[in-house]
């Protein structure tokens, strides 16, 4: 009778496995998988989202997309955001992580306050910084007046030249603390004995940083760089809240442009094509990342 008993338990086991997987798969299947498939299906339609009339237009939405000058501007802005994220956020975060890792007093207190920007919602952050950038009542205008630069005060978010830098500043403000924590965790893993040995050998701080810290931080920095890359490709919230992509497209991103096309101008088919392109770009980046880390691990 042993086999039957085994089969019985197996039966029960399989029942459990199915029951445990089904709820999660339902959510995941309906929203994530079906969602992404539908995005690609919609992207082949000429559809307003309101009417039932849909026409199959093949890849013409994508062709239109490649000729759309505003899409070019949006992609360019996404690239600027990406470069800022990697070129400014990461070095600055590393400086902060090094400061928190140094022998000064009060690092715990500093860390507590430094992390605060991560805790506010994007809506809260966006509104606050809109107020700070206000040409009449903002702190930037106030400080500029105090130091005699009052003539240069403008509507920072309403001017084509300053809107993007202002928004980029706030994005850095919001995300540097996050990378600071990740890099700090990486620094903690470097053994202090290495630095002691280096000091005995007569290396100064500068040399120790370039020869020990930076090489050993390689993997952490690489992960952070990929995260900020993918993050900057799909960025939306803060820009939408602070400028809505304006003035005249100065801060337009792929995601804000998609929102505008879909939910403001009711071109759901075209907006889906933008979403589809975003997905493909992010997917390629993620695959390249996986490939690179796998290759590195293999060595």
């Amino acid at each position: 009778m042993v086999p039957t008993k085994r089969r019985a338990t197996n039966h029960k086991e399989i029942l459990f496995v199915v029951a445990a997987l089904v709820p999660g798969l339902l959510f995941y299947g309906v929203y994530n998988l079906y969602g992404i498939v539908m995005t690609f299906q919609y992207s082949t339609l000429d559809w307003t989202g309101i009417s039932q009339n849909t026409g199959f237009v093949g890849l013409s939405n994508y062709l239109k997309l490649f000729k759309d000058p505003m899409m070019g501007v949006a992609v360019k802005n996404n690239l600027i955001l990406m470069i800022t994220s990697i070129g400014i956020q990461l070095p600055f975060a590393l400086l902060l992580a090094l400061a928190l890792n140094s022998a000064i007093k009060g690092t715990k207190f500093f860390r507590t306050i430094f992390f605060l920007p991560m805790l506010f919602s994007t809506v809260a952050t966006g509104i606050m910084w809109q107020l700070f950038f206000d040409p009449m009542f903002g702190i930037l205008a106030y400080v500029m007046q105090q130091v005699g630069l009052g003539n240069y005060v403008i509507g920072f978010l309403a001017d084509v030249r300053t809107a993007m830098p202002s928004v980029l500043f706030v994005i850095c403000w919001q995300f540097i603390p996050f990378y600071m924590i990740i890099l700090k965790a990486g620094l903690t893993n470097i053994s202090t004995e290495l630095y002691e040995a280096a000091t005995i050998d007569g290396a100064n701080r500068w040399q120790a940083f370039w020869k020990i810290t930076l090489p050993l931080m390689g993997p952490t920095l690489r992960t952070s760089a990929v995260m900020s890359m993918v993050g900057s490709l799909k960025y939306f919230d803060l820009v939408y809240i602070m400028t809505g992509g304006g003035p005249s497209g100065a801060t337009e991103l792929m995601a804000t442009y998609m929102y505008k096309k879909g939910f403001v101008e009711f071109g759901m088919g075209y907006a889906s094509a933008i979403a589809g392109l975003m997905f493909i770009i992010c997917f390629i980046f993620a695959c390249v990342f996986l490939y690179v880390t796998r290759v590195r691990e293999a060595h």
Partner: peptide, 17 residues
């Protein structure tokens, strides 16, 4: 693999669904 799907890319289908 779902970690790679940016949430904005499924906004329109989830809205219409």
């Amino acid at each position: 693999a779902g970690m790679m799907i940016p949430i904005h890319t499924t906004l329109i289908p989830i809205y219409s669904m």
